[in-house]
Amino acid sequence: MAKGEVVLGCLAPHPPHVVYAENPEQNEPFSEGGWEALRWGYHSLARKLKGIDYDCIVVLTPHWQTYVGTHFLGLERFQNISVDPIFPNLFRFNHDITVDVEMAEAMHDAAAEAGIITKMMRNPDFRVDYGTIVSCHMLNPDWDKPIVTISSNRSTHYYSNEVMNEQATALGDAVMKAIEASGKKVVLVASHSLSHRHFVTEAPLPEDMSREHIYNHSQYVWDMKIIDMMRRGEMQEVIDVLPEMIEQTMAEAEGGGLTWMMAAMGMPDYPAEIYGYQSVIGTGNAIAAWDPNEATRQLVL
């Protein structure tokens, strides 16, 4: 059996606004559009994914928050309606998700072997979080690949951003071992924004783009700094400054997604593909991808 590999890593923010703006048949609310810079970026990345041969998508989501270890979805199918607890007016999504349980169990076992506290989630009534659904829908609207969802352990809250970095790195290393042993081709997804300070009010028409802008300039400057480093392939440096960025911008990378993905990919030193950047209710959202294959790596934006 050939060694398994990561064929693409994606930073894929999950504001439900982008699904709302797409008006897919699965989502109940209707919109007049909005957030095109992000959505068109997602469309472009989704087209690239269509041309890549892969077996499953593995997503680490900050909206499945666990304090007791790291958990993995452990049942083959989840059919339900996902209503966003924060933006229920925008996201009421009927989903039918297939899980690669074999891959999930392999990752769980590898993480446990590395000393990480783990748990398989086997409750059939469990509701898959909207972070997973938004990122996966925007990357693969056909939903024709199985996924694995990994919870976000809240080590930032319990300890510090530095401890989060250490633990997410260990999780990334363990996940990579499981991928290599599986022989599968895997797409990794870190489902989160960059800066993450929200406005606490909402326009009467949420998609009114005349109201949309970054929460403050400091957030924007940090976001641009990180994106520039991504362009230059300085991912070890990004992870090194991440604790400070989280502290200053409430960055959603606090959930461990970016650190986990970069660790699993061996801290890429090649340029990231940047697909878009836009604020959503004040937060800073970048869509980026890391393509280990130099022959297919592109300068997108």
Binding site: Q65, T66, Y67, H71, F87, M121, N123, V200, E202, I281
Partner: peptide
Amino acid sequence: WPSIVGHQIQAHPKPVFTHVDDDFHFLGS
């Protein structure tokens, strides 16, 4: 029940669902 856009108030006259806790899902539905 965290909120971001102001303060949310539950007004569904008869909410029906099956809830599972994020951490303690193994205790049951």
